[in-house]
Simulated scan of single mutants.
Amino acid sequence: MPAGERETAPKRTGRRPGATVSRQAILQAARTRFAEQGYGGASLRAIAQDAGVDAALVHHFFGSKEGLFAASMQETLHPRTVVAGVLDGGAGGAGERLLRAFLRLWEGEETSQQMRGILRSAVPHEAAARMLREFITGEVLTPVAEALGGDAPRVRASLVASQLVGLAMTRYLVRVEPLAAMTRDEVVAAVAPTVQGYLTGPLGAWPPASG
Protein backbone atom coordinates (compact mmCIF):
# COMPACT_ATOMS: atom_id res chain seq x y z
CA MET A 1 0.00 0.00 0.00
CA PRO A 2 1.52 3.38 -0.95
CA ALA A 3 2.69 5.59 1.90
CA GLY A 4 0.09 7.98 3.20
CA GLU A 5 -2.80 5.83 2.06
CA ARG A 6 -5.04 4.15 4.58
CA GLU A 7 -7.41 1.33 4.21
CA THR A 8 -10.83 2.55 5.25
CA ALA A 9 -13.65 0.33 6.44
CA PRO A 10 -16.70 0.26 4.16
CA LYS A 11 -19.67 2.27 5.33
CA ARG A 12 -22.49 0.31 6.89
CA THR A 13 -25.72 0.26 4.99
CA GLY A 14 -29.14 -1.23 5.57
CA ARG A 15 -30.34 -2.41 8.97
CA ARG A 16 -28.86 -1.37 12.26
CA PRO A 17 -26.53 -4.00 13.73
CA GLY A 18 -28.30 -6.14 16.29
CA ALA A 19 -31.97 -6.93 16.74
CA THR A 20 -32.09 -5.51 20.27
CA VAL A 21 -30.69 -2.15 19.16
CA SER A 22 -33.10 -1.93 16.23
CA ARG A 23 -36.15 -2.91 18.26
CA GLN A 24 -35.36 -0.40 20.99
CA ALA A 25 -34.73 2.35 18.46
CA ILE A 26 -38.13 1.69 16.88
CA LEU A 27 -39.84 1.71 20.28
CA GLN A 28 -38.23 4.99 21.25
CA ALA A 29 -39.20 6.59 17.95
CA ALA A 30 -42.74 5.26 18.29
CA ARG A 31 -43.16 6.58 21.82
CA THR A 32 -42.07 10.04 20.65
CA ARG A 33 -44.35 10.01 17.59
CA PHE A 34 -47.38 8.71 19.51
CA ALA A 35 -46.80 11.29 22.24
CA GLU A 36 -46.56 14.17 19.76
CA GLN A 37 -49.05 13.09 17.09
CA GLY A 38 -51.28 10.48 18.68
CA TYR A 39 -52.15 7.06 17.29
CA GLY A 40 -53.82 8.43 14.18
CA GLY A 41 -51.13 10.93 13.27
CA ALA A 42 -48.10 8.68 13.66
CA SER A 43 -47.25 6.59 10.60
CA LEU A 44 -45.11 3.47 10.55
CA ARG A 45 -43.04 4.95 7.73
CA ALA A 46 -42.23 8.08 9.79
CA ILE A 47 -41.42 5.98 12.85
CA ALA A 48 -39.08 3.81 10.78
CA GLN A 49 -37.35 6.92 9.41
CA ASP A 50 -36.90 8.32 12.91
CA ALA A 51 -35.42 5.01 14.06
CA GLY A 52 -33.11 4.76 11.05
CA VAL A 53 -34.47 1.40 9.90
CA ASP A 54 -36.43 0.01 6.99
CA ALA A 55 -40.21 0.01 7.46
CA ALA A 56 -40.24 -3.75 6.95
CA LEU A 57 -38.29 -4.11 10.19
CA VAL A 58 -41.14 -2.45 12.11
CA HIS A 59 -43.52 -5.12 10.81
CA HIS A 60 -40.95 -7.81 11.60
CA PHE A 61 -40.74 -6.86 15.27
CA PHE A 62 -44.27 -5.61 16.01
CA GLY A 63 -46.52 -6.98 13.27
CA SER A 64 -48.68 -3.89 12.85
CA LYS A 65 -49.30 -0.37 14.07
CA GLU A 66 -51.55 -1.78 16.80
CA GLY A 67 -48.77 -4.08 17.95
CA LEU A 68 -46.33 -1.18 18.06
CA PHE A 69 -48.79 0.96 20.03
CA ALA A 70 -49.33 -1.85 22.54
CA ALA A 71 -45.58 -2.32 22.92
CA SER A 72 -45.19 1.43 23.45
CA MET A 73 -47.69 1.30 26.32
CA GLN A 74 -45.72 -1.57 27.84
CA GLU A 75 -42.51 0.43 27.55
CA THR A 76 -44.10 3.46 29.23
CA LEU A 77 -46.14 1.86 32.01
CA HIS A 78 -44.09 -1.25 32.94
CA PRO A 79 -47.22 -3.03 34.25
CA ARG A 80 -45.46 -5.83 36.14
CA THR A 81 -43.46 -3.29 38.14
CA VAL A 82 -46.61 -1.30 38.90
CA VAL A 83 -48.54 -4.39 40.01
CA ALA A 84 -45.69 -5.61 42.21
CA GLY A 85 -45.39 -2.22 43.89
CA VAL A 86 -49.12 -1.98 44.55
CA LEU A 87 -49.29 -5.46 46.07
CA ASP A 88 -46.22 -4.95 48.23
CA GLY A 89 -47.75 -4.41 51.66
CA GLY A 90 -51.02 -6.28 51.15
CA ALA A 91 -54.56 -5.01 50.85
CA GLY A 92 -54.18 -2.16 53.30
CA GLY A 93 -53.08 0.96 51.45
CA ALA A 94 -53.23 -0.70 48.02
CA GLY A 95 -55.48 2.06 46.71
CA GLU A 96 -53.01 4.75 47.74
CA ARG A 97 -50.03 2.88 46.28
CA LEU A 98 -51.87 2.38 42.99
CA LEU A 99 -52.88 6.03 42.81
CA ARG A 100 -49.38 7.25 43.60
CA ALA A 101 -47.91 4.99 40.90
CA PHE A 102 -50.46 6.39 38.45
CA LEU A 103 -49.68 10.00 39.38
CA ARG A 104 -45.93 9.40 39.08
CA LEU A 105 -46.44 8.23 35.51
CA TRP A 106 -48.53 11.25 34.63
CA GLU A 107 -46.16 13.71 36.27
CA GLY A 108 -42.82 12.04 35.55
CA GLU A 109 -40.33 13.92 33.39
CA GLU A 110 -39.82 10.94 31.07
CA THR A 111 -43.38 9.59 30.99
CA SER A 112 -45.85 12.49 31.18
CA GLN A 113 -45.80 13.26 27.46
CA GLN A 114 -46.26 9.59 26.56
CA MET A 115 -49.20 9.26 28.96
CA ARG A 116 -50.90 12.25 27.39
CA GLY A 117 -50.33 10.83 23.94
CA ILE A 118 -51.80 7.47 24.93
CA LEU A 119 -54.95 9.01 26.38
CA ARG A 120 -55.42 11.51 23.55
CA SER A 121 -55.08 8.65 21.08
CA ALA A 122 -57.84 6.68 22.79
CA VAL A 123 -60.45 9.43 22.46
CA PRO A 124 -60.88 9.57 18.65
CA HIS A 125 -59.62 6.12 17.66
CA GLU A 126 -61.48 2.96 18.65
CA ALA A 127 -58.45 0.74 18.04
CA ALA A 128 -56.36 2.79 20.47
CA ALA A 129 -59.22 2.94 22.96
CA ARG A 130 -59.64 -0.84 22.84
CA MET A 131 -55.93 -1.41 23.37
CA LEU A 132 -55.87 1.01 26.29
CA ARG A 133 -58.90 -0.69 27.88
CA GLU A 134 -57.41 -4.13 27.48
CA PHE A 135 -54.02 -2.99 28.72
CA ILE A 136 -55.04 -1.07 31.83
CA THR A 137 -57.64 -3.58 32.97
CA GLY A 138 -56.03 -6.79 31.76
CA GLU A 139 -52.41 -6.15 32.72
CA VAL A 140 -52.67 -3.84 35.73
CA LEU A 141 -56.02 -3.51 37.47
CA THR A 142 -57.52 -6.99 37.17
CA PRO A 143 -54.29 -8.69 38.37
CA VAL A 144 -54.25 -6.30 41.35
CA ALA A 145 -57.92 -6.95 42.18
CA GLU A 146 -57.49 -10.71 41.83
CA ALA A 147 -54.41 -10.76 44.04
CA LEU A 148 -56.23 -8.82 46.76
CA GLY A 149 -58.80 -11.60 46.91
CA GLY A 150 -62.05 -9.66 46.63
CA ASP A 151 -65.16 -10.81 44.82
CA ALA A 152 -65.86 -9.74 41.21
CA PRO A 153 -62.29 -8.62 40.41
CA ARG A 154 -63.14 -7.57 36.86
CA VAL A 155 -65.91 -5.32 38.13
CA ARG A 156 -63.53 -3.82 40.67
CA ALA A 157 -60.91 -3.29 37.98
CA SER A 158 -63.38 -1.49 35.72
CA LEU A 159 -64.49 0.78 38.57
CA VAL A 160 -60.88 1.69 39.37
CA ALA A 161 -60.28 2.34 35.67
CA SER A 162 -63.20 4.76 35.60
CA GLN A 163 -61.66 6.66 38.49
CA LEU A 164 -58.12 6.78 37.08
CA VAL A 165 -59.03 7.60 33.49
CA GLY A 166 -61.53 10.23 34.63
CA LEU A 167 -58.91 11.74 36.92
CA ALA A 168 -56.38 11.86 34.08
CA MET A 169 -58.82 13.55 31.73
CA THR A 170 -59.91 16.22 34.20
CA ARG A 171 -56.53 16.91 35.83
CA TYR A 172 -54.06 16.61 32.94
CA LEU A 173 -55.95 17.10 29.66
CA VAL A 174 -59.02 19.26 30.34
CA ARG A 175 -57.31 20.77 33.43
CA VAL A 176 -60.42 21.35 35.53
CA GLU A 177 -59.65 23.62 38.49
CA PRO A 178 -58.96 23.40 41.34
CA LEU A 179 -58.14 19.73 40.69
CA ALA A 180 -55.46 20.60 38.14
CA ALA A 181 -53.63 22.81 40.64
CA MET A 182 -53.82 20.43 43.61
CA THR A 183 -50.59 18.88 44.85
CA ARG A 184 -50.01 15.17 44.46
CA ASP A 185 -50.58 14.59 48.18
CA GLU A 186 -53.83 16.54 48.07
CA VAL A 187 -55.08 14.41 45.19
CA VAL A 188 -54.07 11.23 47.01
CA ALA A 189 -55.84 12.31 50.19
CA ALA A 190 -59.04 13.03 48.26
CA VAL A 191 -59.10 10.14 45.79
CA ALA A 192 -57.24 7.20 47.35
CA PRO A 193 -60.12 6.23 49.71
CA THR A 194 -62.40 5.81 46.68
CA VAL A 195 -59.83 3.67 44.85
CA GLN A 196 -59.34 1.59 47.99
CA GLY A 197 -63.08 1.12 48.28
CA TYR A 198 -63.32 -0.12 44.72
CA LEU A 199 -60.48 -2.58 45.33
CA THR A 200 -61.45 -4.02 48.71
CA GLY A 201 -64.76 -2.55 49.89
CA PRO A 202 -68.30 -3.87 49.46
CA LEU A 203 -69.80 -3.55 46.00
CA GLY A 204 -73.35 -2.99 47.15
CA ALA A 205 -75.86 -4.83 44.99
CA TRP A 206 -73.18 -6.31 42.72
CA PRO A 207 -73.19 -9.05 41.61
CA PRO A 208 -76.95 -9.11 41.05
CA ALA A 209 -78.89 -11.91 42.68
CA SER A 210 -79.41 -14.87 40.35
CA GLY A 211 -82.77 -16.37 39.56
Rank of each mutant, 00 (worst) to 15 (best):
R175K: 10
P124W: 10
P79Q: 15
H60I: 01
T81H: 14
V86G: 03
F135E: 03
E126T: 12
A84D: 14
A128T: 02
V155A: 15
T111I: 02
L159A: 15
E75Q: 15
Q74V: 09
R97E: 08
I136K: 00
R116D: 10
L141Q: 01
Q163C: 15
G67F: 05
G90E: 14
M115R: 03
R133Y: 11
A145R: 01
A147F: 06
G92D: 15
I118T: 08
H60A: 08
L99T: 02
G89A: 13
L119R: 09
E66K: 15
Q113W: 00
V165K: 05
E110P: 00
F102N: 01
P178I: 05
E109G: 06
F135H: 10
S158K: 11
L77R: 14
D151T: 13
F102A: 02
P124M: 12
L68W: 02
R156M: 13
Q114H: 06
A161E: 05
L132T: 04
A128F: 01
M73N: 11
D88H: 13
V140C: 06
Y172D: 05
E75S: 15
L99F: 04
A168R: 05
L159S: 11
A122Y: 04
A70Q: 07
L77A: 14
G117W: 01
L87G: 14
E139A: 08
A94C: 14
M115H: 06
E109N: 05
G117I: 02
R97A: 06
R133F: 11
V155P: 03
L141T: 01
R100Y: 05
M169Y: 12
L132K: 01
L179C: 00
E96K: 07
G90Y: 10
G63M: 08
M169D: 12
E139P: 00
E126D: 13
L164D: 02
Q163F: 12
P143Y: 04
F61G: 00
P124Y: 10
M169T: 11
H125F: 08
E66C: 05
R171V: 02
G90R: 13
M115Y: 04
A152S: 15
L141W: 01
V140R: 07
G149K: 12
G95E: 03
Y172L: 03
S158F: 09
T81E: 15
E109D: 08
D88R: 14
A127F: 00
F62T: 00
A71V: 10
G92A: 15
D151Y: 09
L132V: 08
L141A: 09
A94V: 12
A161N: 12
V165W: 06
P79A: 14
L119P: 02
L173E: 08
S112L: 00
A127T: 08
L99P: 01
L132D: 01
L103N: 04
G63F: 07
V82N: 07
D151N: 13
G166H: 07
G67V: 03
L87I: 07
A161D: 12
V160I: 09
L87E: 13
P153F: 10
